[in-house]
Nucleic acid binder design. Structure first.
Lengths: 161, 161
DNA sequence: CGCTATGCCAGATTATATGCTGCAACTGAT
DNA sequence: ATCAGTTGCAGCATATAATCTGGCATAGCG
């Protein structure tokens, strides 16, 4: 038995991705209706999209304000010297911290851009002082407190071809 | 018939949130096993968490690189003058743009921090030149290209109390 | 000490997920 | 143009899951 050809995504696949980005908990029956298929081939496609890595996962999004993380901050971090070791150590520390949702290595004036959700300013003070600034190689940091989230989504635009 | 008391979350509720953040498409039966309940009360709790706004939605996460958005950039935008009108116009324009995943109004050196996913540098050039810089009131912009996503999650830490 | 409300489980019913079968459209080669 | 191989779909059957309806246990309260 041969494995299915990993052909490119057609319009139906793309509509499935659009739909599942909007509502990750939609039933397969309803999804099938949305994209104009019967449930069986629709489910097949979803499984294929998952196994081929087009879909990386499904997640519930919870309300940070209701759950004690009302404060959103971005932190720019500059390292003194960017050796591989320091990079790895910094990355590892960041991954362990639940308050830090994102960490990106960027090109430009600084080295890392972090996104963190904390309860309040004193929690942030602790995160910055006790954790971030104590990591080896950290030379500078600038903090930006979010006053309003104008837009916030993880949805990607899917071109229907 | 009275509405249920909006009491605070107990340990089971919190475990449900943790579980659904990890796997938003888990079946209610399996979720119930995870949190040590039978399916009926578990489903009740999930519905309650949804209707009370603790759960804001469920979304599939897709692979940007496989879908023509391999480049992730952050853009800092400074406005010349921050009037209510300009703010509103900027916000509205940002919300219309599918390439822009996040836009935050921040305190500090600049005004907005944007997160955008685009296909490549020339796509970004177009987004910046044709859209962002043409918005009224925009005075400066700095762009940071992400070289590596060290960490990327939307999961919130849920304290079990 | 019984009343009442809350939250759970169990069982029944409906809906969904999932595997299987056969048909129709498409492909390419004769 | 026709025949066979291939692909993808719908339809059906069965296993699972979602959802509803009691009824029981427990805790707070009068």
């Amino acid at each position: 038995m041969l494995v299915k050809t990993p052909k490119h995504l057609d319009r139906i696949d793309r509509n499935i991705l659009i739909s599942l980005q909007k509502n990750g908990r939609i039933s397969n029956v309803e999804l099938a209706k949305d994209v104009g298929l019967s449930p069986s081939p629709c489910l097949e496609r979803v499984k294929r999209l998952e196994s081929q890595g087009y879909i990386k996962g499904y997640h519930a999004v919870v309300d940070p304000e209701k759950l004690g993380a009302a404060m959103l901050v971005f932190v720019e971090i500059t390292l003194t010297k960017t050796s591989v070791d320091i990079f790895a150590e910094f990355s590892a520390a960041v991954r362990l911290h639940d308050d830090i949702q994102e960490c990106h290595l960027v090109s430009g004036d600084f080295d890392f851009l972090l996104k963190a959700r904390v309860a309040d300013m004193s929690s942030y003070r602790r995160l910055l002082g006790d954790t971030l600034l104590r990591l080896p190689g950290v030379s500078e940091s600038r903090t930006y407190v979010v006053m309003e989230e104008v837009k916030s989504t993880t949805s990607l635009r899917i071109n229907l071809k």
